[in-house]
Amino acid sequence: MDFRHHDDLWHDFPALVPAVLLIDGVTPDADVSAAVAEHTAAARARLAAGSEAELPQIQAWRRAFAAQGLKPTQYRCASESLLRRLRREGELPRLHPLVDLCNAVSAAFAIPVAALDVTRIGGDLEVRYADGSEKYETFGGELEHPDPGEVVFADAANFAHARRWTNRQSGRSAIRPATTTALIVAEGLHETAASDVPLLLDTLAGALRAAWRAEPATAVLTRGAPVFRA
């Protein structure tokens, strides 16, 4: 499987910095509580200085959503939603150790992180503008079609594994107890993304090694080298 961003996105969002990680050997019984607590504390420290909406990482995504014709306060990137929930409820949701770890790191860095079950992806996966024919499966099992021009994670079988770019993942490839291999994608658009995203990648890779005793494959993609081969 190849993962990449379409050249149209590189053209329209030249500040984009994506990082990709592939890990095999995931199990639902790993203990990530210490790492989750550490990164959740870092996220709380960010929020102590002001609202998540004021963070440059979030502001960059709000501008990107606005450029796509979306209302940034109606459709929030994943990291903004996590920080907002943390500020309001005091905790992050607990779902699966891999998801919990990705959520905590995402909140700590204020950068969206997506985790997908590789076995549920049909062939190559590309982040691109939708044409409207793609099939998106909700967490309730219903099928939707993204709006034309919406950014999606589309596979070769024309399933969309995320809608509105970093807003909402699909239930089709959600991490579940049976997941053993996961593709993790982090994307930044803010001014210091070129240094922040690789640091997030190293941080997450280290936490995954500790939790599952597995060596993840990692890469930071660029317009000149846009493909991650799993």
Score class of each variant (00 low, 15 high):
175 I>F: 09
221 L>P: 15
173 S>R: 05
179 T>G: 05
198 P>M: 14
228 F>V: 13
154 A>S: 13
137 E>W: 14
219 A>C: 09
153 F>I: 00
71 K>F: 02
86 L>F: 00
208 L>Y: 09
4 R>L: 15
115 A>K: 04
163 R>Y: 06
43 A>Q: 01
33 S>P: 03
37 A>H: 02
102 C>M: 10
89 E>W: 06
201 L>T: 02
9 L>M: 12
78 A>L: 04
26 V>C: 10
159 F>P: 03
184 I>D: 02
175 I>S: 05
107 A>N: 06
120 R>H: 10
218 T>D: 04
155 D>H: 05
166 T>S: 08
131 D>V: 14
133 S>V: 15
30 A>E: 07
111 I>R: 00
172 R>Q: 08
63 R>E: 12
168 R>A: 01
209 R>S: 07
74 Q>L: 05
50 G>R: 15
22 L>D: 12
200 L>H: 09
222 T>H: 04
191 E>A: 11
189 L>W: 11
148 P>S: 14
1 M>C: 10
28 P>T: 14
88 R>T: 00
211 A>H: 04
208 L>N: 06
76 R>F: 00
78 A>F: 09
197 V>Q: 11
181 T>M: 08
161 H>V: 08
188 G>D: 10
9 L>C: 12
38 E>Y: 10
23 I>N: 08
78 A>K: 12
106 S>N: 07
138 T>E: 01
102 C>Y: 04
27 T>R: 10
31 D>W: 07
207 A>F: 04
158 N>Y: 03
117 D>S: 14
183 L>E: 05
74 Q>A: 05
124 D>R: 14
23 I>S: 04
150 E>N: 13
57 Q>R: 12
125 L>R: 12
41 A>M: 09
44 R>N: 03
110 A>R: 02
17 V>I: 15
82 L>R: 05
107 A>M: 03
44 R>K: 11
178 A>Y: 09
120 R>V: 01
147 D>F: 11
50 G>E: 14
44 R>T: 07
36 V>D: 01
49 A>M: 12
192 T>K: 08
97 P>W: 02
38 E>M: 09
129 Y>A: 14
128 R>F: 08
97 P>C: 13
88 R>P: 00
228 F>T: 08
148 P>F: 11
24 D>K: 08
211 A>T: 12
31 D>F: 11
80 E>F: 04
35 A>L: 07
83 L>E: 00
49 A>I: 12
41 A>F: 07
106 S>A: 14
196 D>S: 15
205 A>I: 08
155 D>R: 06
187 E>M: 14
75 Y>I: 10
118 V>L: 15
